[in-house]
Amino acid sequence: MKDSYDIIIVGAGPAGSAASIILANKGFKVAIIEKENLPRHKHCGGCISSRSIPSLQKLGINIESVSLHKYKGFTMRYGDLVTGYDWGDMKVYGVYREVFDYAITNKAIDAGVVILKNQVKKLRMEDDIILVFLDNDNILETKVLFGADGIHSIIRKEIGVTYQKNKLGFCLETEVPATDEIIDSYNDRLFLDFSYFKEGYIWAFPKKLGKTINIGFGTDFHTVKNSKIPIKKILQRYAQDKSLFLPRIHGAFIPFGGTVDCFGRNTVILLGDAAGLVSPLSGEGISYALESGIYAAESAIDFFEHNTPLLESYSRKLNSIKNEINIYGLQLQKKMYRGRTHRKLMFKMCSKNQDIMKKLGEIFTQKITYEQGVKQLTPLKLLPAMVKALVT
C-alpha cells in the first residue's frame, strides 16, 4: 500500500515550506520531501529585502525573531569611487539562512505538515495520479506535486523542463567571525563592491548579533570560467584588507539569466530557484521563493475546490514576476554590468546625484519594481547627471 497525500512538495526551503503552511492550514494532507538534514546550510548572503516582509507576515513569521541585523542603508564601491545611501524606515534584515529557513519549516510542522528525509529518484504519471519513487524504495502517491528543490531540480528534469547553462550564475560565501569594532565600521550598512568582476559584485553583510560578517560574491558562470585569478583569492584579499580570516568558503550555482520557459507540466509545478525565480541584477531569490510558494498554494486550493487548471492558474499568478525578471531585470543587469567604462560612469553619476543613488538603492532592495526602475533610469532622465559626470 502506498502512502497518499493531497500535495507533495519536494524541497523544504522558503518556497516549499511557505506553500505547505497555507495548504496545511486549509486542511490538506501535505508532505515535504527534503534530502538534507534540517536545519541545512544555504549558499546565501542572508539579506531579507523589504519585498519579503508582506509574504512573511502572511505566513505568520516574525522576521524580528530571527534577525541578526537591521540595515539602514548600503555602501557601493567601484575602484576609487565610493558612494552610499540611507533608506530611512525601509525594513531590510540580515539572517543566518539555516535559522531563517528552519523557522518557516517549523511553522509548517506546527501546521501538521509531514517532513520526510528522503531523496526523489523518479516520477511516474498514472492517469491523474503522480507516483513518487524515493531512495528508500518507498513509493508515494499524490494528485499535485511542487518542485521546490533548487537549481539542480530533479523534478524539473523529470518533467522535461530545462534551464540553459548560459543562464547560470555562481556564488561563493562564508560567515566570517568579526569583532564589534569591525562590524561597527560598516555603519549598519550593506556593502557592495563592483570593482572585481565584469558582471556581479562582492558583498559584505554584517550581522551584529551573530558577531559575523557574511562575505561573498556572485557573478555569471562565464566570468568564473574565464577568470585569470582564482575567485577565492579575490575574496581572501578583500577579507585581509579588513583584518578578517576567511573560514570554509561555500560555493553554489544560482539562476542568473531569467526564468524557465515553462513553470511545470499538468499538476506538477516548479517553485523558487527550480523555476529560475532569482533576480538577474542582485541574485536575490528569497522574496520570489516566498511569493511563488504562496501562489502555488493558492492555485492548488483553486484546483481542488473549483477544478481550476493548476498550471494555468499558477503561471498567470507568476506572470508579473516572470516579466519583472525576464524583461526588466535583464535590462537592468545590462545597464549595471555593461563593461567597466559604463559602470564607472554609473558610479560617477551616483556619487554626484543622490536621487540616482537613492533610486539604485530602491531597485537593489526591491522597494520599487524593476519595471519602475527601468522607466526611472532612462537615458533621457539620466542625461543631466551623465553630462555632469563626464565633465568633472
Rank of each mutant, 00 (worst) to 15 (best):
I8D: 08
V10L: 12
V10E: 10
A15I: 11
I21G: 14
I21Y: 07
G27S: 09
E36N: 14
P39F: 07
K58Q: 12
S65T: 13
K70Q: 13
K72I: 13
G73F: 04
G73C: 04
G88S: 05
M90H: 03
V92D: 11
Y96L: 15
F100S: 08
D101M: 04
A103F: 09
D110T: 05
G112R: 09
N118K: 14
Q119L: 08
K122T: 03
E126P: 00
L134W: 03
N136C: 02
D137E: 13
L140N: 01
K143L: 01
L145E: 03
L145Y: 06
G150S: 07
E158R: 03
I159W: 12
N166G: 01
C171G: 13
C171T: 15
T174R: 00
P177S: 10
E181C: 04
D184N: 15
Y186W: 11
N187I: 08
L192I: 10
G200C: 03
F205T: 09
P206N: 03
G210H: 03
T219Y: 07
K225G: 11
A239N: 07
D241H: 15
I249M: 04
H250G: 06
G251Y: 11
G251L: 13
A252D: 14
F253D: 05
F263I: 04
N266F: 06
A274D: 09
A275Y: 06
G283V: 12
S287D: 15
E291G: 05
S299L: 07
A300D: 09
S313K: 09
Y314V: 02
R316G: 02
I325W: 06
Y328V: 00
M336S: 11
Y337I: 05
R340L: 10
R343T: 13
F347R: 09
K348H: 11
K359M: 14
E362G: 01
Q366E: 15
K367V: 10
E371P: 00
V374W: 00
V374H: 02
Q376F: 03
L383V: 04
A385Y: 07
M386L: 08
T392V: 13
